[in-house]
Design a protein around this nucleic acid. Structure first.
Lengths: 341, 341
DNA sequence: GGGCAGGAGTTTATCGATATAATCGCGCTG
DNA sequence: CAGCGCGATTATATCGATAAACTCCTGCCC
C-alpha cells in the first residue's frame, strides 16, 4: 500500500480512504491513486484489514458433509441471501463422525469469520455445552440444543406428523418408517421424525407398530437395502415414510426392484424437499422443512449476534438467545395418492 | 497472548513457542504456560498468524455452484485428502453466471488461502488471461485453458467417445446427445462431450446425425424436458448420451413418463459418475471422469506451486505450468445392454 | 482582521502473532 | 579463572491496513 501511496505522492491513509471510500477524497487525488494502484497491480490485503478492522464480511457455514445435497442447497440459499449485501459465504466441513465434528468445532478457525452458522448433526447437547468460542454462532439444528445459543431448527416432529397424517388419510394402514429410531423429541433427527410418525397415529386413533420402524443410516444405498430387508422378512406394509429424501430415493429403487408399484401398492413420502426429489420416478412427495425461512432466520439471528459484538457468545451476560422453528409444509407429488373424500 | 504470558510469568514469545512447538521450551515453563492458557480460555488468533507468518494451512476450492452434487463430491474428496496433513479445505462460490464468476475471480479474497483450486465452467480462456493473482492457482477445467496456469482436466472427449462406442457396439443406431452442442474440443464441456460422440461414430463408420444433438442447460428439469421434446417432435432414437448425470436423471424420468423402457427401448449413458447415479431406476451407466485421480493431481500441483512460493503465478518467469488429463473410465450399470458377441 | 467551520490529507498507534537477533545462565575446558 | 559453547528465554521489529487524532488551508461571517 505504501508503494501505491508513494507512486501517487500521497500517504497510505489516503490510499486506504480511496480504496474503501470511507472518507471524502478529492476527485483529483482519487484518480491519481486509482491509476497508481492499477499500474502496480495492487490488491488490498484482506488479512491485514481483518486484523485491524475486525471485519471480514464473510460468514462461514460449517456442515458435517460436503457431499450431501441438503447442505449444498442450504449453502446456495445462504450465499444468495448474502450476495446482495456484498458479503460472502464460505463452507467448511466439520467432519463425518461425532469425534471429528467435535474436533473441528474446537478449532480456532472460526475467528476467521464474522460469524458461523453451525449445522449440527452428530453432536449432542452436552458436547455443545463445552464449546467455548468468541465468534457469533447460530446453530442450525435438527434437535434440541443448549439454550444458550441462538438456534434455528426445522420442525421434524410436526413435519413427519403432517406427512404421516396424509398417508393415513389416504388409506394407508401399515406405514413403515425407513431411517426410524426410538421416538424422542430431542435425541436427533431420526428419533424426532419417528416421533411425528407415532403422534400422527395417535391423532388418528391408529396403532403405530414398532415392527414397522426400520433403522437405516441416512445414505443412498441404505434406503434400497431397507426395502430389501422388509420384503425379505415378509413384513406387510402399504406406505413408507422415509426420514430423508435421500433414503426415499433408495426406497423407490428398492420398491422398483421388488416389483411394487408406487403409489398403487406402496405410497412413499420423503423429508427435506431436495431439488432432486422432483425428478425421481415417480416424483417424490415430501416434507419441505421451511428451507427459505430457515436460511433467512439464521442470517437474521447471526446479524443480531454480530451487531452486539463478539465475545459475548458464551457468557451468560449476553442477551437472551433466540430459538426459532421453521414451519414444515407438505409437498405432494406422485408417490402418494389423493386424499379420500 | 500477552495476558497468558503475564499470567505465566514469561514473555509472549515463549507462549508462542509453547503453542506452536517450533522451538524447545523447558518442560517446566511449558506446563506453566499451558495451564495459564487453559485458565484464560486463550485461543490463538489465526488472522494475526496469517499476517505475520503468511501461512494458513487452508486451501480454497472455488466452484460456480454450491448446490450441484458434482462439486459437493469434489469438495469431499479434496477434504479427505487434505485432512491427514492437518490442512483444511473451504469452499467458495464464484457465481452462477459468467459475469459473476469473473467478478468473484477478480476479488482479492484468495489471499486468505495458501492456494486456490478454481473450478472453471462459464469462463473462457480469454477471461482467464486477464486474471492476475499472486496466489498459487490450479485450474480444474472442463476445457482448454490458457497455458500459463497449472491445469487438471477431465477427458471429456475421450470419455464421451468411450460411452458412445459402447452404445454403438451394443446395437444402438440413433444416439441422441442430450445437452449437446456444436462439437469442439475447446469451447466448453458440452461441445467437448459432443465431439466425443461424433468421433465415436466416425470410428465406427457410422453417421453422427446433427438432428440428434439436443441442446439443454445442465440442470435437473432439462433432461426430462429434452426427452419430451424429442418424443413430441417424433425424432426416432434408441439411445441417449446425456452429457451429465444430472441430465441423465431427468432423461430417465422423461423416458418413464413417455412409457419407454430402459434399456430395452432406449439405452442411456450419463457422464460424471455421481454418487446418486448408482440409485436411479434403473441404475445409471455412466462415465467416471477419473475423480480420484483428478483430486490427487490437483493437490499435487498446488503443493508444488505453493512450495515454489507465491507471487510467481502470473509472470512468465515461473516454472513451466503443468497440464494433466485424468483418464475417463466407463462404468456400466443397468441402463445399457450387454455388448454383443 | 480575528475567529471559526469544515474539507483534505497526514501522523501515530494499534490489531496479535512471530522471525530474528540479542541476552542470560551455566557447565566445562585448557 | 577467563573464555567458550549452548540451551532457554526475551526484546524488538515487522507483517499490512486502519481508527483516531491532528495539521493545514480555504472560505466566510461578524
Amino acid at each position: 500500500m505504501s508503494d501505491v501511496a508513494h507512486a501517487a505522492g500521497v500517504s497510505t491513509m489516503t490510499v486506504s480512504n480511496v480504496l474503501t471510500g470511507r472518507r471524502r477524497v478529492s476527485t483529483q487525488t482519487r484518480t491519481r491513486v486509482e491509476r497508481a494502484a492499477a499500474d502496480l497491480g495492487y490488491e488490498l490485503n484482506l488479512t491485514a484489514r481483518h486484523l485491524r478492522a475486525g471485519r471480514t464480511d464473510t460468514v462461514a457455514l460449517a456442515v458435517p458433509f460436503f457431499d450431501h445435497p441438503y447442505f449444498g442447497e442450504l449453502a446456495a440459499r445462504l450465499a444468495r441471501l448474502l450476495a446482495p449485501e456484498g458479503r460472502h459465504l464460505v463452507v467448511e466441513q466439520t467432519g463425518p463422525s461425532r469425534e471429528a465434528e467435535l474436533a473441528a468445532v474446537t478449532r480456532a478457525r472460526w475467528q476467521l469469520y464474522d460469524g458461523v452458522l453451525l449445522s449440527v448433526v452428530g453432536m449432542t447437547a452436552a458436547d455443545l455445552d463445552d464449546l467455548r468460542t468468541s465468534v457469533p454462532l447460530v446453530l442450525l439444528g435438527e434437535q434440541q440444543m443448549p439454550a444458550r445459543y441462538d438456534h434455528v431448527r426445522m420442525d421434524n416432529v410436526g413435519g413427519a406428523r403432517l406427512a404421516t397424517a396424509h398417508l393415513l388419510a389416504t388409506g394407508a394402514r401399515r406405514i413403515a418408517v425407513v431411517g426410524g429410531a426410538e421416538p424422542s423429541a430431542d435425541a436427533g433427527m431420526m428419533p424426532a421424525r419417528t416421533l411425528g410418525w407415532a403422534l400422527a397415529h395417535e391423532d388418528a386413533g391408529a396403532a403405530a407398530e414398532p415392527g414397522l420402524v426400520v433403522r437405516a443410516p441416512a445414505d443412498l444405498a441404505s434406503g434400497r437395502e431397507a426395502v430389501r430387508r422388509i420384503v425379505r422378512d415378509g413384513i406387510a406394509f402399504d406406505a413408507v415414510l422415509a426420514v430423508t429424501d435421500t433414503l426415499a430415493a433408495g426406497v423407490l429403487a428398492g420398491l422398483a426392484e421388488a416389483g411394487l408399484r408406487v403409489p398403487d401398492d406402496v405410497q412413499v413420502v420423503g423429508f427435506d424437499n431436495l431439488a432432486s426429489s422432483e425428478l425421481t420416478v415417480p416424483a417424490l412427495s415430501t416434507v419441505d422443512p421451511g428451507h427459505e425461512h430457515l436460511a433467512t432466520e439464521a442470517l437474521r439471528l447471526l446479524d443480531v449476534a454480530v451487531a452486539r459484538g463478539p465475545g459475548r457468545g458464551a457468557d451468560g451476560a449476553a442477551d437472551a438467545p433466540r430459538h426459532v422453528t421453521a414451519p414444515a409444509e407438505l409437498v405432494l407429488r406422485a408417490t402418494t395418492r389423493e386424499r379420500r373424500g
